[in-house]
Amino acid sequence: MKLLVPVKRVVDYNVKVRVKADGSGVETAGVKMSMNPFDEIAVEEAVRLKEKGAATEIVAVSIGVQQCQETLRTALAMGADRAVLVLTEESPEPLAVAKLLRALVDREQPGMVIMGKQAIDDDMNATGQMLAGLLGWAQGTFASKVELSDGVATVTREVDGGLETVALTLPAIITADLRLNEPRYASLPNIMKARKKPLETIAPGDLGVDVTPRLTTLRVAEPPVRQSGVKVGSVAELVAKLRAEAKVI
């Protein structure tokens, strides 16, 4: 079975993001970028399935600017077999991404798509679900455990209040949650070898998809700075402040 693993290039999780002075978005110039951590978990899961013999080939896909090649090289170093870059000027919206992925699914015919549950930059949490909808495939989102047998994926999902286990008939979409696994390091020898693995670049037009944005960003602002606390002298004063100043009781 072939696995398709979409990976997104995002601002590194260690970086404190900064809103551009004009409020048009987040500053990315000169900022360290890396693979979305949930996508790393997805890549790891795919590699483990291949190591167990449940999958035969892993195709990593990224959609975005030229530098997404670096993200794909990381996926290749972790164990993906080949990579496809859909080159766009900026990162498209979830629906456009889902449509591009659908076109790639048509082309590649994978048995499963494993992807991060959401990207840490826009926190949309939409692409996996949209892709499942467009394809009419089963979906197992927020996966913390995946088991495969006889064309069925048994997926443990992290839901509010506990764990839900679902059985999906393949082909299916799985979106990875934090506890699914702990991704391996891309080791130096594997990074060197990944330089020689195939990486194909295509345009959205090649897949017949229009990636024109449908959403308009009005404004991006930083969250308000947390005010420092005050010490109160008595319970009565606390109640008075909660009532008059905080207006919560």
Binding site: E182, P183, R184, Y185
Partner: peptide
């Protein structure tokens, strides 16, 4: 040689241990 990765605080090999090169 590059450093080993995935060594634990106690100096043991963790689950993601990857030797240096």
């Amino acid at each position: 040689a590059t450093g080993d990765m995935g060594v634990t605080r106690e100096g043991e090999r963790g689950p993601n241990f990857a030797p240096g090169m």
